[in-house]
Design a protein around this nucleic acid. Structure first.
Length: 571
RNA sequence: UGGCCCCUAGUGUAAUGGCAGCACGACUGACUCUGGAUCAGUUAGUCUAGGUUCGAAUCCUAGGGGGCCAGCCA
């Protein structure tokens, strides 16, 4: 049966594009762009925009440009343009030769500014920033006109040329559009088009000392690039009238701006200002710290590009402000890695276990399935011997109810190996459990006739003499609160940082098949989670990042049991 | 307080005047040599009040709630 794939309903932006296609509004063209400012690293919120813009181009047989919105030389750096390109490529999108910079358009923008001056639609203003603020009025009161508003065009032309020539210090003058000081939309109260900044630009060097503002740049850049649909986030909605005003006043090709709601994630901050602050103040190790919501951080954490694209697909596009549970992101990487990651046995917190009735020098090679979800992935051999390590959490002397793991006198299966029974618990002088002595049922090895016997629990393990040492880095949410900005008076989001967001385990053991593992390789540690080899990894000491734990219904059960106890106690 | 935008199960998102659906979560159960995965099932929603209409989540009005805007940031 080849049932037709039911068309996933279009989001509202795609609906607009489709309607335009049906009416032939742009001669059948669809041309979008992704316009990052190179002042920081891309994060998961940008991925939403990238998937939308490149996705629409793909879906409607159009193109998507990459354009760096580099109009503010005080904040922008080449390092960021390189990282941005890396991240977009990693996500799997291709802008081919359509790589543009707003700074490529500086001369054209300057000419357009002169044109508006000539038509009496722009003027050079000498108000200080403070004065300009007080002239602007408030949300409820109109502003008052700048005293320089009615200068003759010739004088404006000359002053603007002298601004460009570098005759005036920073902040002393601006070029402003002459629109409407009483407009209820503050963006139309004679907005600044150019400011003086004697700062070197990452591309144009010292060629310019005046720089156009975002508003005077963005629409025209879209226009130059023949963009059809200029998709941006909601906070630019109030700027659309200005976008339209510049295109109309300049009488140039006029794309349509469409706004959608930006991504918010629980337990996460997604503003570049804050991410920069986390990096600059060393709350994290860098932009690619695996706890960061940056694409480079997620990548280092072990997220796949596919899982991020899948995530962007499931969250949808709309205009309503919303917050996605960070668990949705975690689920999308679980879903992807479940199908693709090789299973492997690793012990995070080792507890020695001796099979007292297993021959001293015997080693058996046991066949282990690499990926039960993918028969093509094949199998590998795992060595078993008398001395093993199991997970400390998998043994309990006085276990709570429904504990299916090992306990004194209890039986469990060692995965791919034998059913064992705990005969003796060895403790040190302080009463800490240091070793377990177990017997094994020699007929119960996986694959043997006696293997059919059922026991409730199955444990992962490694052979003490064959395993490799590893460091495992466990990551937890960077913030303690769903909404990191939910703080008491006088505090800020940094007060909500989770002091335990990184836990480093230095005494872990992994099965020998990981000897050749390379940075970036991903594995599932059976019963634990998904892990990715970190770039800090050395041949003698593997370093692994936990991407995300496996779903853990035991942990969940315990949680509800504890809550039940609490209730009983308080009641 | 002015302008603009938004409001559909717990979360997110469809339905564009005609049966309120999907995904995720949560809960049940089945299966399981990963307490994973998988499968089956259950759960739960149109912010409120009016109006238009044979018929309203959808259109109109008022109210409520939320977001954005007073950078020479983007």
């Amino acid at each position: 049966m080849n049932a037709p794939e039911p068309d996933r309903s279009l989001n509202f932006v795609e609906q607009i594009v489709q309607a335009d296609q049906e009416t032939n509004r742009w001669d059948g063209r669809v041309h979008t762009r992704f316009p990052p400012e190179p002042n920081g690293y891309l994060h998961i919120g940008h991925a939403k925009s990238i998937c939308l813009n490149f996705g629409i181009a793909e879906k409607f047989n159009g193109s998507c440009n990459l354009r760096f919105d580099d109009t503010n030389p005080t904040k922008e750096e080449v390092e960021f343009v390189e990282s941005i390109k890396d991240d977009i490529r990693w996500l799997g999108f291709d802008w081919q030769d359509r790589e543009y910079f707003a700074s490529d358009y500086f001369e054209q923008l300057y000419q357009w500014a002169c044109q508006l001056i000539g038509e009496g639609l722009a003027f050079v203003c000498e108000l200080t920033p403070d004065e300009m603020r007080s002239h602007r009025g408030t949300l409820t009161e109109p502003g008052i006109a700048s005293p320089y508003r009615d200068r003759p065009a010739e004088e404006n032309q000359e002053l603007f040329a002298r601004m460009r020539a570098g005759e005036f210090p920073d902040g002393s003058r601006t070029l402003r559009a002459k629109i409407d000081m009483a407009n209820p939309n503050l963006n139309l109260r004679d907005p600044v088009m150019y400011r003086i900044l004697h700062t070197e630009h990452h591309r144009t060097g010292n060629q310019w000392c005046i720089y156009p503002t975002y508003d005077f740049t963005h629409g025209q850049s879209d226009s130059i690039e023949n963009i059809t649909h200029s998709i941006c986030t909601l906070e630019f909605e109030n700027h659309r009238p200005l976008y339209d005003w510049y295109c109309q006043s300049l009488k140039i090709y006029h794309p349509q701006q469409i706004e959608f709601a930006r991504l918010n994630l629980t337990y996460t901050v997604l503003s570049k200002r804050r991410l920069l602050e986390l990096v600059a103040q060393n709350h994290v190790s860098g932009w690619d710290d695996p706890r960061m919501p940056t694409l480079s951080g997620l990548r280092r954490r072990g997220f796949t590009a596919g899982s991020i694209r899948q995530f962007c697909d499931t969250i949808g596009i709309a205009k309503a402000t919303s917050t996605i549970d960070v668990g949705v992101l975690e689920n999308s990487v679980r879903e992807d890695l479940n199908k693709t990651a090789s299973r492997v046995m690793a012990v995070q917190k080792p507890l020695k276990l001796v099979l007292i009735d297993y021959p001293e020098d015997q080693v058996e090679m046991l066949q282990a399935v690499n990926n039960p979800e993918d028969p093509e992935a094949g199998s590998r051999d795992v060595p078993l011997s008398r001395e093993l390590y199991i997970e400390r959490d998998d043994f309990h002397e006085n276990p709570p109810g429904k504990f299916f793991r090992l306990k004194p006198g209890g039986e469990v299966r060692l995965r791919y190996a034998y059913i064992i029974r705990c005969e003796k618990v060895i403790k040190d002088d302080d009463g800490n459990i240091v070793e377990l002595h177990c017997s094994h049922d020699a007929d119960s090895r996986s694959g043997m006739p006696g293997a059919g016997r059922r026991v409730k629990g199955t444990l992962h393990w490694v052979s003490a003499n064959h395993c490799l040492r590893a460091e495992v880095r466990l990551y937890d949410r960077l913030f303690l609160k769903e909404d990191p900005s939910d703080v008491a008076e006088g505090e800020n989001y940094l007060d909500n940082l989770n002091p335990e967001s990184l836990q480093t385990l230095t005494d872990c053991r992994v099965e020998p098949s990981l000897a050749e593992a390379q940075p970036g390789d991903r594995f599932q540690f059976e019963r634990l989670g998904y892990y990715s080899v970190d770039r800090d990894s050395q041949p003698e000491l593997l370093v692994l990042n936990r991407t995300v734990s496996l779903r853990d219904s035991w942990a969940k059960l315990q949680k509800t049991q504890q809550q039940g106890k609490k209730k009983a106690n308080s009641g």
